[in-house]
Design a protein around this nucleic acid. Structure first.
Length: 520
RNA sequence: GGCCCCAUGGACUAGUGGUUAGGUCACCACCCUUUCAAGGUGGUAGCACGGGUUCAAAUCCCGUUGGGGUCACCA
């Protein structure tokens, strides 16, 4: 995809600041960014805040922050309001007004004084007749072929009657263009309504402002969601009115809900921040979203990409046409891949603050004389990294590395305890107390040689020990777990545990009595 | 409803006239194993339908069906 020499690729992401960035927006931003970077071009962000009613305070800032956190950084920003930031349409009102005037003079646009009621009535009537609702041209000024005398129009203007400016769409013109992902697309201008360009509050509509800005900002490629495809004719007509060359366009397939409708809140989380909050990392989200509609093709079986790798490999030709369901199953898998690949140092950086906060709340068993906190954390991470999907699970799933278990998982106890379990366990505790070499290796030998003469299998002890130490029936290799936790804590927990979990049959109440004890 | 877009297993997709239709997630089984994972091996499951064109169609054309988008002084 070569561009003419001297014609720099410039792509843009143009969100409206009405809330948090959602994943569809993130993907649009990402594709724009990737394409620009791939082509050695510029990526810019433009805030489209022309709807004063829907504008949300601070949304622009949060949008930018989320993008930045994901590694998508605009190439241009400029000083306004005392800060550097992206282009903002509400600060460019004069420009739109000026171009609107030009269209008015060229008679490509006209004043429209119709009231909301009139428009509504007209719409209803047309719908009733089975027609596509469109502006009724009978209301046009006389000189534009309508019925409103010029004098009346001028009078209303002078009197300050509210008005909007509409573009005059020519009749029956075929509008064709080449979409970079969809190929040739054709519309008939007869199906295009006289779009409002300037609203009565003096703000431009999206269609008008974005065309002007794309031209003024020398945007070479407009990459946006498919929901904009049907407004292409309006935009193309505007370019023609101004005599400007339109940018190349690519309409991206939509991101879908599980029911295949356009991705929306209601059916689950859509804000990027929601996913971040749940523990998904920006890298995984970017990776995931990049693959929703794009792939390398040619038998490439790769699934994990960093942002830099995407920058290198992305291309618009490899963007698909069909909508893609945003299904988080695969995102979870990706997150796990990233955790496995992440450096220990980086994980410690994230979970150490979490851990310290936890340690504030409860007293810990961590023997800081024996080992430093970071070393200890490092060992825990090493043991747990294959078993967690999120960084925060390092804390929640391995709390027993830091605190005594608060109880013992009932199901596991029932499954692993038999009549003489506690008896054998008691003897084994004494052995552990005497064990100097508390390494995983030696612990394994010790346990095996302890159990063999008693006619038991290692599992006979392994499971109960695990449960008394951790409270749960799953976790890393027992021997390694014991080594990390350390002898003192191990022995203490076992001694305490053996009192709390009586062997079956010993207590009168059987299972229910045991339950009571366990919940103690 | 008008206009526009789309159509490979449950999800994401490879495939551009000749393939036993490939990969990833999920799912199932087995192996490994002290649990849970991870890993390994294998498996269930797909070209929406109907016509053409062609020696040959998932692939090209037409139609049907299905899905989606859009028809605001919202973007």
């Amino acid at each position: 995809m070569q561009t003419a020499p001297g014609q720099r690729v410039r792509a843009r992401f143009a969100p409206s600041p009405t809330g948090f960035l959602h994943v569809g927006g993130l993907r649009t931003a990402l594709y724009n960014y990737l394409y620009a970077k791939k082509m050695n071009g510029d990526f810019i962000v433009r805030i489209e805040d022309t709807d004063q009613a829907r504008k949300v305070e601070g949304a622009d800032k949060s949008l930018l922050e989320t993008l930045e956190m994901s590694g998508i950084v605009p190439d241009e920003s400029f000083m306004h309001g005392g800060n550097f930031g992206p282009y903002v349409q509400s600060e460019r009102l004069g420009i739109y007004k000026q171009y609107c005037q030009q269209l008015l003079e060229q008679k490509n646009a006209y004043y429209c004084f119709s009231t909301a009621e009139e428009l509504e009535e007209n719409r209803k009537l047309q719908m009733k007749q089975g027609l596509q609702p469109k502006y009724n041209r009978k209301w046009l000024p006389e000189e534009m072929g309508g019925t409103m005398p010029e004098s009346q129009s001028r009078k209303k203007l002078e009197e300050g009657v509210p008005y909007v400016v509409r573009m005059k769409v020519p009749d029956y013109v075929s509008i064709m263009f080449e979409d970079m992902v969809r190929g040739p697309v054709e519309f008939d201008s007869a199906t295009v309504d006289d779009q409002v360009l300037m609203k009565s509050d003096g703000f431009p509509t999206y269609h008008f402002a974005s065309v002007i800005d794309d031209h003024l900002m020398e945007i070479s490629h407009v990459i946006r969601g498919e929901e904009w495809l049907s407004s292409m004719p309006k935009h193309l007509l505007l370019y023609e009115f101004f005599g400007w060359e339109p940018p190349k366009v690519a309409h991206l397939p939509l991101l879908l809900n599980p029911d295949r409708s356009k991705l929306s809140k209601r059916q689950g989380d859509v804000a990027v921040e929601d996913f971040i909050g749940k523990g998904y990392s920006p890298e995984a989200i970017i990776n995931f979203v990049a693959l929703l509609g794009w792939n390398e093709g040619e038998g490439c079986e790769r699934e994990v990409y960093s942002l830099d790798e995407l920058k290198e490999r992305f291309s618009l030709q490899r963007v698909g046409k069909a909508g893609a369901v945003f299904n988080i199953e695969k995102l979870g898998w990706l997150e796990k891949q990233y955790i496995k690949a992440r450096s220990q140092k980086k994980i410690i950086g994230v979970i150490k603050p979490l851990l310290l906060a936890e340690l504030e709340k409860k007293s810990t068993d961590m023997d800081t004389a024996r080992i430093t906190r970071d070393e200890y954390l490092g060992q825990v991470i090493e043991l747990m990294r294959e078993r967690v999907s999120f960084e925060h699970e390092f804390i929640s799933f391995s709390s027993y590395f830091f605190f005594d278990p608060e109880g013992y998982e009932e199901k596991a106890v029932q499954k692993r305890w038999v009549a003489d379990t506690n008896e054998v366990l008691g003897e084994f505790i004494s052995v552990l107390e005497e064990t100097v070499d508390f390494s995983a290796n030696n612990l394994e030998t010790t346990l095996r040689s302890f159990v063999a003469p008693r006619g038991k299998k290692p599992a006979f002890l392994i499971h109960p020990v695990r449960i008394l130490i951790s409270g749960v029936g799953f976790g890393p290799s027992l021997y390694h777990m014991l080594e990390v936790i350390g002898r003192e804590t191990v022995v203490r927990r076992l001694k305490k545990g053996i009192e709390r979990v009586p062997a079956p049959g010993r207590s009168e109440g059987g299972i229910s009595a045991r339950r009571a004890v366990i919940r103690d």
